[in-house]
């Protein structure tokens, strides 16, 4: 029962979430006494690939071709599916991010292999294959049984953790046909966001709600985020009002985040928002209303006006860092 893990790279580089994915795949391989293979498509840097061995990746299939510069779901799925056959993988793992979700679903249908998306732990049993996933946007979990021989998983971010486990990495030349004619995705233009720290990567997120009163007050959020090296985020009403761009919206219908620390500032804590942050390790809430439901979800709470508390906190963190 070999394990294949799809390793996305960003301009040739990997992220912490990649290391988590490798750590997780290596752990499953160990659990099932099998081998773990990684597949990288496109021009990832060699030293980056070698780094993956630190987290237990034993075998790597790296297919370089310019056609992989832009994600085409159909082409990528075709290549990954050939790789599955080549390494005889029974369990194929993706990150639970945009790319992972897009590919895992296609691969599942192609292989007729049961898909479990958003898994949060190691499998509970091998045969039948049972694993736990999040559902209802983090409001619950479920054990899912896979009825097929092969399975496809996507791993929720920060659900497992990064574990070092150095092994020797083995580069495998696989006989994979690149059916470039499958690629129908033509890239016209790329627009980069200006955020200093990406919300989906961030260890710390500083988020604001309607309690901020208006976009002109957002500097208190940004200043705290700056001093903590955090990403900024907001609630749905804030993005609906146009105070902040919609890609900052965290919650049930926006982004689901799972940082180490989430600051909820002037956020009342609507059930839909809490659903989007409940996997955060720590939540600190600042709100002037002591009865706000956000305090039910938070680990630490401060009752006070965000416009006073945040600048004061930023100042104190700066002093502390000195």
């Amino acid at each position: 029962m070999n394990i294949l893990v799809y390793l996305e790279h960003w301009d040739g580089k990997f992220k912490k979430s990649t290391f988590e994915l490798v750590s997780y795949a290596a752990a499953i391989a160990k659990q099932f006494q099998s081998n773990v293979y990684g597949i990288v498509l496109g021009n990832a840097e060699t030293n980056e690939i070698e780094q993956l061995s630190k987290y237990g990746l034993e075998n790597i299939i790296h297919i370089q071709n310019d056609v992989f510069k832009v994600l085409d779901n159909q082409l990528f799925t075709d290549v990954i599916s050939q790789t599955v056959e080549f390494v005889n993988a029974k369990c194929i793992i993706f990150a639970h991010n945009n790319t992972g979700k897009a590919l895992a679903s296609r691969l599942s249908a192609k292989l007729k292999a049961g898909l479990v998306s958003g898994v949060v732990a190691l499998p509970e049993s091998k045969s039948p294959f049972i694993i736990r996933k999040k559902l209802f946007t983090g409001k619950a979990t479920a054990q899912v049984k896979v009825n097929t021989e092969k399975c496809v998983l996507t791993l929720s971010q920060n659900a497992y953790g990064v574990y070092e486990n150095s092994v020797a990495i083995n580069k495998i030349n696989a006989d994979i046909k690149i059916n470039a004619e499958l690629c129908k995705t033509n890239l016209k233009e790329v627009q980069k966001f200006t955020a200093k720290v990406l919300l989906t990567d961030a260890e710390i997120v500083v988020s604001g709600g309607r309690g901020l009163k208006g976009p002109e007050n957002w500097h208190v959020i940004e200043e705290l985020a700056d001093v903590l090296g955090a990403a900024t985020a907001c609630t749905r009403p804030v993005s609906d009002e146009g105070w902040r761009p919609h890609h900052e919206h965290v919650g049930q219908t926006g982004k689901i985040v799972a940082p180490m620390l989430y600051f909820a500032c002037g956020i009342s804590g609507a059930i839909q928002h809490v659903a989007g942050i409940s996997s955060s390790k720590y939540i600190i809430a600042i709100n002037k209303d002591a009865e706000a439901p956000i305090f039910e979800a938070a680990d630490y709470g401060i009752v006070g006006d965000v416009m006073q508390v945040l600048p004061e906190l930023t100042k104190k963190i700066k002093e502390f860092k000195k």
Binding site: N98, A102, L103, S105, T185
Partner: peptide, 20 residues
């Protein structure tokens, strides 16, 4: 939260899909 029907449908129909 399956994130699945669209991708699977495209694969079953053998046509392109764009996600997100």
């Amino acid at each position: 939260n399956g994130n699945a029907v669209g991708g699977m449908l495209a694969e079953l129909l053998n046509i392109p899909s764009v996600s997100s």
